[in-house]
Design a protein around this nucleic acid. Structure first.
Lengths: 120, 120
DNA sequence: ACCCTGTCTAGATGGATGTCTAAATAGCGT
DNA sequence: ACGCTATTTAGACATCCATCTAGACAGGGT
């Protein structure tokens, strides 16, 4: 259950200077868009923030409890985050645990990091 | 034409510690998701990178020329970026120019910036 | 063996989104 | 005034997506 990340693997591979530095290649843009698409939902953002701010990892049961949504819906969102390479998961006994993958989150942050501008 | 930004204004207002620090409030997540949704398309990512890496600003005519898409489609994507607060625009004579809003891009970068983890 | 709980998969459905064509608006040059 | 170019708006259409219900699968306890 741990290795089906798709979108961000190329990103993690050192892709993409900050937006300020150079225009994106179309293929890079496609890969990056997949990652940002995973972040483009309030539920997934909250899931990621819960997972990331937790101490190392989070149980699905705790995550589900934080929302007013059905189990399958949460499961779907976690799958999107996992396939985007933003989190990883593992089953231990009855429960499944999720933890963040900062090595794939950091390049996204670096891409958006922009210095101040003349024009404000 | 310059002031209909919607999504990121609250973000720019000093919102949101890094994901690592604390879970997001639901309302914050909704606002941030709007911003990431604007980034969640390859065309818009390339538009933003063209605008941001250009020297100060870009003319719509140059942006349109960089894609194999119709003018209205580019215009639509630029509107999405503008309403998300990521860029701003101004008409000067015949042409319309777009420039980035780093004050609204930087909080997004800060949100995703994550330190290394025990578990890799 | 059986049941109970936790999680995921499959399939359906209403709403959002990317793209197009056609038409409107804005400014420039003659 | 007219026509030409640049850009946006309006509306249509096909696809994608968030959510749900129903059911499958996994593990633990009795």
């Amino acid at each position: 259950m741990s290795n089906q990340s798709v979108a961000v693997d190329t990103v993690a591979g050192g892709c993409c200077a900050p937006l300020v530095a150079a225009p994106l290649e179309p293929e890079q843009a496609v890969d990056l868009a997949k990652a940002f698409k995973a972040l483009a939902d309030p539920v997934r953002l909250r899931l990621l923030s819960l997972i990331t701010s937790a101490d190392g990892e989070s149980c699905v049961c705790d995550l589900t409890a934080a929302f007013d949504l059905t189990g399958p819906t949460i499961s779907h969102h976690l799958k999107v985050l996992r396939e985007a390479g933003l989190v990883n998961s593992e089953r231990r006994g009855t429960w499944v645990y999720y933890w963040p993958r900062p090595e794939n989150l950091r390049p996204l942050a670096a891409l958006l990091d922009s210095p101040d501008r003349v024009r404000v």
